[in-house]
Design a protein around this nucleic acid. Structure first.
Lengths: 361, 361
DNA sequence: GTGCTCCCCGACAGCGCTTTCAGAAAGCGC
DNA sequence: GCGCTTTCTGAAAGCGCTGTCGGGGAGCAC
């Protein structure tokens, strides 16, 4: 009674004994893996209830060599972009009765590999890689070396927003065409002078969005010179710093009339920087982002962006991974990005020369 | 070669054989659980490397009856409040080399119980319950019935923002005094007419914050009548709807000059509602929230709120749970909320009678 | 050389479950 | 009543690992 010993778990064996049946029958009764006389079934269930039996998932996994957990690796759950996708993953996971092991790499490529390895050890049914990969051959090789044996052993891998080096299922936002569409929409508003707040060069998503944006601009014969692309971290602070840098750079020269931040999170930082610097958005400077994370609708002005169905993407990627193994073909789900024009973009202010002209009228 | 069979896993047995040592030695060499001659150790490691050995975590857990996963149950990872806390949990988990199983209940009490049960089956080292509980005796009883045997068997439970029905470790924000402090700060600004946008009655957090706010107001002799407390869902939409309801209710009567939304997420919705209705914040209406989720700093105007160190709370709760088992005493970490006055609150507009007076001057 | 200690290592017994395999029981037609 | 099929149940063999226990060598003092 006063024994403060850690109580041991109730085992299936105890349940079986109490129900007066064999271990095998108890297992079958509880899992419904084979027909068991109704009377016995009830006896077993009753015994399990009374004893408060909870199966040992590890023993089950070991014996049946299968588990119902999936691993999800993202950069940072605290980031609204990943939070939104993770939300979708969780919802779909709940429906399919799988447990999710979540890992945040905090943007350290090495950690991603370490987590894949841990999830392999857990014999996760699937591993989901969320968010842009890195353009680093050594890293790609190591990740591939981790993933390939996993897949060969029957593991499923699916990715979001990542060039699949392996033949994995993937949910791929149309970064390139989305950014191009955005560029066109911005051109249509009348802008001719652009700048880009870009993320780390090694992220493939950054490269795609930047390329797409350039592509769209090029249709109007506009090119971005090196000075008008500022690289920063993939965070609010990165966007803030990049925007400040941009303002410094364009101190002498004519300032761009429109800035594209490659993610909404960075755009949020940029908006703050502009506000602090007294640059009015959109009157003096238009600003656009990418992703349509929920919070950008709450900004003043609300942010023009390329909307991605983040939650749905999360749901898709796990369904993709859990679906019946494809016939060696990897499935790719392309998700279109829709340009949503909000109040953060407007027609550019009249050019300085023009206003000078008018001033002298 | 062309066999498309799912390849089986490399076992420790294979490693041992290849290294020419026994199973036991291989295990010891890899885990460092006992001294092994350096030469053998290297042979084993080399063999493991060559074969690409990945231990089977289930087998390890079964044999050693211990695992390094902790379960985290929250209402919705997509919500910035939980995302922030989860971010902290993930960071601390990474440091302590534990894997996190994350579950979202989507605010269904029954799901929480189901998840606790699943985590019990997983033999999670600890279970963390994040976010307000429900004031529902039947639910509390069931949850207790799930948790008590888990704890008795050596499991650790820790909670954030929840009255612990069991003697569990807890990280408890000072909801009550925080809200009271906020009320005082708001009174100091000159407000006398208040309204509250409240959450679901059954959430304990709501009750505490509401009570604290009332308490603060009472010091100035002010009471909230039933009509000035509007209940809504614990979401942005809930806040939006509640704010609209409030505007409708106060159509005839003098409108409050200051509104307290019991969470920032609701305040975000309220801000949108006020903006749509043409009610200027803070000129015509002051608005304050609670939590200080990251996004409220980006709003226009930035939101006055009671700041909680969300990420740190996440780190604390997992550390609390993983620390050496307390001597039967549960540890409670109280976290103070700090009132942060931002531009969403200001002195109330001059009262109608006053302005009338001045008008006639 | 003998006796003793101290280290390492290997054999083996589980951990708690699933699943195969074979046998018992029951049902059926003749 | 006999042989056959059909249906259910129990015994037992793992799943892959850890941890205990005992033995074999090496090392040392005498």
């Amino acid at each position: 009674m006063s024994e403060r010993e850690a109580q041991t778990h109730v085992t299936l064996d105890a349940v079986a004994r109490r129900a007066g049946v064999s271990l095998a029958t108890a297992s079958r009764a509880l899992n419904g893996t084979a027909r068991v006389r109704e009377e016995l079934r009830q006896r077993v269930r009753a015994a399990a209830d009374v004893l408060g039996y909870i199966p040992n998932a590890h023993a089950q996994a070991l014996a049946s060599s299968s588990s119902n957990t999936v691993g999800v690796i993202c950069h940072d759950v605290g980031d609204p972009y990943f939070a939104a996708i993770a939300g979708g993953v969780m919802r779909a996971a709940a429906e399919q009765d799988v447990l999710v092991m979540l890992a945040s790499t905090f943007r350290e490529p090495a950690k991603e590999i370490a987590y894949v390895s841990m999830l392999r050890a857990q014999r996760a049914r699937a591993i989901l890689l969320i968010g842009s990969g890195f353009q680093d051959p050594s890293w790609e090789r190591k990740l591939g070396a981790e993933l390939a044996p996993y897949i060969r052993a029957g593991g499923r891998v699916a990715v979001v927003s990542r060039h699949r080096s392996l033949r994995t299922d993937a949910v791929l936002p149309e970064n390139r065409s989305g950014a191009a569409d955005l560029a066109r929409a911005l051109l249509r508003l009348g802008h001719r002078e652009f700048a880009v707040l870009s993320g780390p060069r090694e992220l493939t998503t950054v490269a795609d969005r930047l390329a797409g944006f350039r592509e769209g601009l090029l249709e109007a014969g506009i090119t971005l010179d090196a000075g008008s692309v500022v690289h920063g971290a993939f965070t609010r602070e990165g966007g803030y710093a990049a925007a400040r840098e941009l303002l410094v750079r364009s101190a002498g020269v004519p300032r761009p009339t429109c800035v594209f931040a490659v993610t909404d999170v960075m755009a949020v930082g940029a908006l703050a920087a502009f506000r602090e610097a007294g640059v009015r958005v959109p009157e003096e400077m238009s600003l656009a982002g990418f992703d349509d994370i929920p919070l950008v609708r709450e900004l003043t002005p609300p942010l023009t962006t390329v909307a991605l169905p983040l939650t749905a993407m999360g749901e898709s990627v796990i369904s993709l991974a859990l679906r019946e193994p494809r016939g060696a073909r990897s499935r790719v789900l392309r998700v279109g990005g829709e340009v949503v024009l909000r109040a953060s973009t407007a027609a550019p202010p009249s050019p300085p020369t023009g206003s000078l002209l008018w001033d002298t009228c």
